[in-house]
C-alpha cells in the first residue's frame, strides 16, 4: 500500500489513537500528533503526485 489514503477510514478515527498517544507522550501528545499528521500529509501528497512504485518490485 502506498499510504493511508487508500484505506477505508478506521472506526472512530483518532479517538483510540489519541488515548494511546496520551499514554505514550503525556502532555506532548497533541504536539506529536500534529507533527505526525504533517509528515503523513507530505508522504500522501508525494505519493498522489508522483505515483511511486515499490522497489524492488
Amino acid at each position: 500500500r502506498t499510504g493511508r489514503s487508500v484505506e477505508p477510514p478506521a472506526e472512530r478515527p483518532g479517538e483510540r489513537r489519541m488515548a494511546e498517544m496520551k499514554k505514550l507522550y503525556g502532555a506532548e501528545a497533541a504536539k506529536i500528533q500534529a507533527m505526525e499528521a504533517a509528515m503523513q500529509l507530505i508522504f500522501d501528497r508525494n505519493c498522489d503526485k508522483k505515483q511511486p512504485k515499490y522497489w524492488p518490485i
Binding site: 493511508r4 505526525e36 509528515m39 503523513q40 500522501d44 508525494n46 505519493c47 508522483k50 511511486p52
Partner: peptide, 17 residues
C-alpha cells in the same frame, strides 16, 4: 522524499537502481 507515520515505506526520488 518522505516517510509515512506507520513506518511502512520511504518515498524517494531519483533512485539509482
Amino acid at each position: 522524499g518522505a516517510a509515512d507515520v506507520e513506518a511502512v515505506a520511504f518515498q524517494v526520488d531519483a533512485l539509482r537502481t
